[in-house]
Write a protein that binds this DNA or RNA. Sequence first.
DNA 1: GTCAAAAATTGACGAAGTGTCAATAATACA
DNA 2: TGTATTATTGACACTTCGTCAATTTTTGAC
Lengths: 239, 239
Amino acid sequence: MVTETRKQREIREREARILEVAQTHLLGGGYLGLNMERIAAEMEYSKGTIYQHFRNKEEILIALANEALQLRQNMFKRASQWDGTSRERIAAVGAAAESFVETAPHYFLVEQIVSASSIWEKTSTERRDLMARCQQQCVAIVGGVVRDAVTHGDLTLPAGYSPEDVVFGLWSINLGAQTISTSSDSLGEIGIPSPVESLRKGQNQMLDGYGWRQLSTEFDYFAHMDRVKQELFDHAPVC
Amino acid sequence: MVTETRKQREIREREARILEVAQTHLLGGGYLGLNMERIAAEMEYSKGTIYQHFRNKEEILIALANEALQLRQNMFKRASQWDGTSRERIAAVGAAAESFVETAPHYFLVEQIVSASSIWEKTSTERRDLMARCQQQCVAIVGGVVRDAVTHGDLTLPAGYSPEDVVFGLWSINLGAQTISTSSDSLGEIGIPSPVESLRKGQNQMLDGYGWRQLSTEFDYFAHMDRVKQELFDHAPVC
DNA sequence: GTCAAAAATTGACGAAGTGTCAATAATACA
DNA sequence: TGTATTATTGACACTTCGTCAATTTTTGAC
């Protein structure tokens, strides 16, 4: 029993190590930079052993993406529990999204690669389901804040609008802005010197459009978000 | 001279044909489905001939992405010239963005793949520059509409906001929404039955937040966008 | 401590794909 | 018609994926 446990622990640790190594390779050379042989060499194991952990390259990618989603979910949850008005809380989640990309850019890259390459056929259903569930929970967390806002009277949704419409809007603008930021390196020339700031502006205006109080004209959400980032994510590492 | 011209035309036509074939393969199997050998076989040429046109696989991807950007730019330009108020014009551009993904989903896929895989080192500077320029012009077109709105008094930007901030917001929300729509297939379960509608709602709210008149409470932009799509893009093919 | 059964590890191998290049075929033109 | 130029081919060297029989290590009974 004791040896059994030790064995299991070793396997789990090695698996984590594989993902760690894979991540650095992925950051260096994208999908093509990920190479089973090289991972094996760097870990001083042979290829076959790596394949004992992951059926194929794609499973490694999905596993990394799952880690990413898990981390984000934790960060969102924590931010959504911020002690303040509903609009402060939703802004806190925005700050969490910023922090996520800043502290774990590799995870964001992994998510992009996974969503772009059609690797789904090759992967197991369990991992796919796990991803879907994680994503669902992220939406639920943000949706909860929106519902709270409605309940407290901070936000009145127009007829025909659901809380999920608001969530989708925020999700879109954040994902889009982060995608643009990481993939285009000449934004300064176009007239967008600070994408993060522009994102915050857009987000503020959208929520103002919904009439979600306090409006950004009445409260400094920029300062608030900086504070959230510092208090929640700079000093206390999540997950 | 006559033969020379014929030769050149043949080369140009074959190049277009290669891209056409590549596109179908890409749609079927993503980046991994793209295969030089198979392209050659399908065209009844040998691999070497394909390599005479494109230095490598990545060049084909970039060429396709350039086509995509070119098409989008044309659609945006056309939409931005819609005869109506500034807010109707910006909504028309939104409609163009919708049409782009609907009529040319393969192009959107190509853009995603290109921005996710780090294939840039392998490609020529000319193609890269072409892409950057195209993107820049798209931003300029949308920025023009925003500036017109400011000039005509339909829109008053808050202090510290540039027209490009507005453009970036719209760009983000559109790219994000389209990325989510194509990559996640369980949106219905999450509570987002119609991503396109949710996107339009978010966009409307953001522009309302900026106070860009007429507000969406005073004008039916949904009907307007449908009309634009039909009149500009359904009947008359662009490019 | 010994030994056989079970489990883990290895790396040679087949398959598939990329990009190159000498050889060959087609074309242009004097 | 014959030679120079250009286009085309596919064999080749190389890389990587994923498999699997052979080998090594570990386990646990005695």
